[in-house]
Amino acid sequence: MGIIYWNVKAIHAIIFLWSYLTFAQFLKSGTMQQHNANTFGASIIYNWLSYLVDYPNKNFLYSNEVHFLISLLESLRLTQNAHGIQAFASTPDALLRLQLEYTRLFIQDGKRPAAAPPYASFYLEHRLWGESTEEIMRLYKTHGFNLPPNEIPDALCWELAFLAHVAEQGDMQTEGLMLQHMRTWFPIFQEYVETHAEHIFYPTLVKLIQILIQKEDS
């Protein structure tokens, strides 16, 4: 995703500090409707997760986004995860290890096919750019959400970015549609990540996403 885009989001990090406690509460309760008033906060959270599921680059581990993740995990009492990530982030080759983990899980593995390609249609149709992808693309288009043509529309980071886009506009209906779609494929993806991950970072992340996208009454 574009560098400029993420610079803008880095500014948002300041707002995270303001919103994360609210968000932690919201995750604990597991409901979204209670926090309708805080749609702007939800949008930031989606964007934040979208950033975290993209390929980790140079300053990733020292970014506000990762600091926020650790604080959030602590406040959610997921202390083991928080400590795991904190300890990991302070090792000298942490970034390389995280990049290798990302490559192996999501792009290509030398020893098997990528464990968990982060594309919805992979789980729904066993291919990229299937009919379900086109449906997603239609949804994006009708909401003025344009992405670069080389990108795969139903990649996890784009689905999260779209959620951020509609949440920002307070479009609960579309947000609900998208969440419903995500619930069709995300559980299998999550299972693959949990089964094949070599350390705690990505299983923690997918767990948070799973909490965020689950049905309101569950």
């Binding site: 490559t103 792009i107 290509q108 096919p113 990528a114 992979f122 291919r127 990229l128 750019w129």
Partner: peptide, 13 residues
Amino acid sequence: MLAYDANRLKYPM
């Protein structure tokens, strides 16, 4: 299905 093969090479490695 070549263009949309999930196992395609996607990034420099």
